[in-house]
């Protein structure tokens, strides 16, 4: 494709650079201080690998690993479920003409966003108890799926508003079924929205403490509940070490997928 001048708006690259700098500087601090011998993050008192050792062999390491697995599992599933529902909802809102309750629907989809977290937490717990559902993986998953929906919905619908329906109409005029038109035309065009929505839901789910802490049951921990709970004794640097590891793994995965992808053919565009 021919390069347009518009691809390089003056100053935008610099702003992007600033953005990355702002995002990563605090993470560098975390990574550096995960090697700090003192358990404070403000005083440097020598290099140590003890916190990393603790992550792998400490007596609590199993608990932290379980929590990490739980967090990832909940985040992956909840954001997948919410993305699928958000996708269907976006098609319903933007591709199905008008119907009663359409603008109210937008309020309903946005509701999880605007209920303060503590209110969702207490209300969900009361409701789950009323249903006789005691805290478990399932209750956490349900709660996360609910509050992820708007985070998945908004990028998808923003994307869909940019896509006129003439491509799909053309396809159906050419005797494609609606399902084919959806799968072969709309879905590929929507991919950036879907990916964005999924990623946002994912990080929102991964970060949630308050709601999880109320609806989770006995013995079930996620990373935030393990980290936030430590108020009586204070946060220790093994958390820093674990966060740095998690970060390192994800950065390696991102780089790998980039390098592998570069070798492959550019089959799909997102």
């Amino acid at each position: 494709m021919r390069r347009s001048g518009l691809r390089d708006m003056p100053g935008f690259a610099q702003i992007f650079g600033l953005c990355v700098f702002l995002l990563y500087t605090p993470l560098i601090v975390i990574a550096v201080y995960s090697f700090n011998a003192s358990s404070s993050i403000t005083i440097w008192s020598g290099f140590t690998l003890d916190w990393y050792k603790e992550v792998f062999t400490g007596i609590d390491s199993q608990k932290y690993r379980d929590a990490a697995v739980n967090s990832l599992l909940v985040a992956v599933i909840a954001s997948a479920l919410s993305t699928v529902m958000a996708l269907a909802a976006a098609v319903g809102m933007l591709r199905a003409g008008s119907f009663r309750g359409r603008s109210i629907s937008f309020g309903l989809i946005g509701l999880p966003l605007l209920v303060p977290e503590i209110v969702t937490a207490v209300a969900s717990l009361i409701f789950f108890s009323f249903l006789g559902l005691s805290g478990s993986f399932l209750t956490v998953l349900i709660a996360h799926t609910v509050f992820c929906i708007p985070f998945a919905y908004l990028p998808i619908s923003a994307r869909m508003q940019d896509i006129p329906d003439l491509y799909e109409t053309a396809a159906t005029d050419l005797y494609a079924t609606k399902w084919q038109a959806f799968r072969l035309i709309l879905l590929p065009m929507l991919l950036p929205g879907i990916v964005s929505g999924y990623l946002l839901s994912f990080i929102v789910s991964l970060d949630d403490f308050l709601i999880t802490n109320f609806v989770k049951g006995n013995g079930f921990e996620t990373l935030p509940t393990v980290i936030f709970g430590a108020v009586r004794t204070g946060i220790r640097p093994n958390i820093m070490a674990m966060s740095s590891l998690l970060l390192l793994i994800s950065i390696v995965l991102v780089l790998l997928s980039y390098l592998i992808g570069r070798q492959g053919r550019e089959k799909f565009r997102i």
Partner: peptide
């Protein structure tokens, strides 16, 4: 990007999100 391609299906497509948010929130 709005269209009536799925005219009449709107409520059905919205149903999962409505149901989950409606019941659990």
């Amino acid at each position: 990007g709005t269209s009536r391609l799925y005219q009449g299906k709107g409520p059905w497509l919205l149903l999962p999100a409505w149901a989950v948010i409606g019941i659990f929130l």
